[in-house]
């Protein structure tokens, strides 16, 4: 009789198996589990305003904001010269964007930057940075190409600032990309820019004479085979990043493999802020 009772209980337990009661869902909260205690039903709590998380004081302005430390210059309330006026206005306008990286950029940072770039940036900006990513091909506003003069001249702090705070249609990525990774992405942007606008002392032989076409974006339409299109677009972008070709034969400007660009940047060295420049050689 007991046996039969247990069989029935087993059968009931099996029938109820789909509900997964018992110890499957315990009273404690799993990350991101719904929690009725709070009004927003989040078990994962947002940081309360006006608090600083441990280790997140972010004192280093250069490292965490992309703006250089402001020189301690005297401010005159009533400037007596042009120069003093300039100084005061600059001070009032805020600190200038950083021209240098907060730490020395090594091969490791390029690799990391490339990886993060391809995860977070490439969907819109494209693998080669021409602003022709897949999302843009689906109707998102096209971002500017990195390979325009304005952005080639922009200080590194600009890119860092854009990743951290967003610009135009681009949202910020501060929650998803930690500052060190943002700088690595900036380093990778520099490599991309060099690879698509390079002047070489010796032009390698065998470069096709035709100028590389500027990537164009077809109008948005219903897709027949999205994975195939994706593969084709990525192959084109990678081809551009992996080969030699003319951008501007008159000015002797080439696009070169991005690996070569990384080597060139490592040889020349990317600018590092003064406080750590001395230590760069050691790393």
């Amino acid at each position: 009789m007991k046996f039969r009772a247990s069989v029935v209980a087993c059968a009931l337990a099996l029938l109820a198996g789909g509900c997964r009661r018992e110890m499957y869902d315990q009273p404690r909260l799993e990350p991101m589990e719904r929690f009725e205690f709070f009004a927003d039903r989040r078990s994962l709590r947002p940081q309360p305003p006006g608090t600083v998380a441990r280790g997140r004081l972010l004192e280093d302005r250069h490292l965490y904001t992309g703006y250089s430390e402001q020189a301690k210059q005297p401010v005159e309330l009533f400037p007596t010269s042009e120069e003093a006026l300039e100084r005061t206005l600059a001070r009032l306008a805020g600190p200038p964007l950083a021209e240098s990286f907060p730490f020395a950029i090594t091969r490791r940072h390029f690799a990391r930057g490339r990886e993060r770039f391809e995860i977070f940036c490439a969907p819109c900006h494209g693998l080669a940075g021409y602003g022709d990513g897949m999302v843009v091909r689906r109707g998102f506003r096209r971002p500017p190409s990195y390979h325009i003069e304005r952005l080639r001249q922009a200080p590194v702090g600009h890119f860092f600032d854009v990743i951290s705070r967003g610009i135009g249609a681009m949202d910020d990525f501060a929650d998803r990309i930690p500052p060190e990774d943002r700088w690595a992405i900036v380093a990778w942007l520099r490599a991309l820019q060099l690879s698509q606008w390079a002047r070489l002392p010796e032009i390698p032989a065998g470069i096709p004479p035709a100028r590389a076409p500027t990537p164009e974006i077809p109008p948005v339409r219903l897709q027949r085979d999205p994975p195939a299109e994706l593969a084709q677009v990525q192959a084109e972008q990678r081809a551009r990043l992996g080969s030699y070709g003319w951008i501007d034969p008159e000015k002797k400007i080439l696009h070169i493999p991005v690996e070569r660009a990384v080597e060139l940047l490592l040889e020349a060295g990317l600018p590092v802020r003064a406080s750590v420049a001395g230590k760069a050689g050691e790393r």
């Binding site: 007991k2 247990s6 209980a9 087993c10 009931l12 337990a13 018992e22």
Partner: peptide
């Protein structure tokens, strides 16, 4: 034996999983 076997089964907490 029937009485005895009842108790370890119950003591397991979830006797329906005795198997």
């Amino acid at each position: 034996i029937g009485c005895a076997a009842l108790f370890p089964l119950l003591h397991m907490g979830r006797p329906w999983l005795f198997f």
